[in-house]
Design a protein around this nucleic acid. Sequence first.
DNA 1: GCGCTGACGGGAC
DNA 2: TGTCCCGCCAGCG
Length: 113
Amino acid sequence: MSRDTDLYEAIYAIVRLIPKGRVTSYGAIAAAIGMKSGARVVGYAMNHCHGVKPGVPAHRVVNRNGLLTGKHHFGTENEMQRLLEKEKIRVAEDKVQDFEKIFWDPAKEITEL
DNA sequence: GCGCTGACGGGAC
DNA sequence: TGTCCCGCCAGCG
């Protein structure tokens, strides 16, 4: 991985690795790529996910509080929640229910990276 | 080329 | 236990 978008590619790769019915946080992804304090950069990368080749399931990425902070960037606010509910993920008040239970740790799966 | 903002996180009060 | 403030990296005006 020696591309110019190495940072973004790593983030997109991790987000794409998120299993169906599971969610993760920006900080977890940031830590997985070595940016423990780069949670903002991860979120910013998601902002650029529009137009990405395979399509990044950004709807599975929420903040540390489990809140759908970026739902507003999906075009429609109900789009993100609808996708999550389609994944059998409980969503109420724009926040993921049982977030800690369905939480998927990327660093735990990409530990070899 | 400088400064601000932004889909966040964590520590301090 | 909850809320506020500061810190971080990168893109854009």
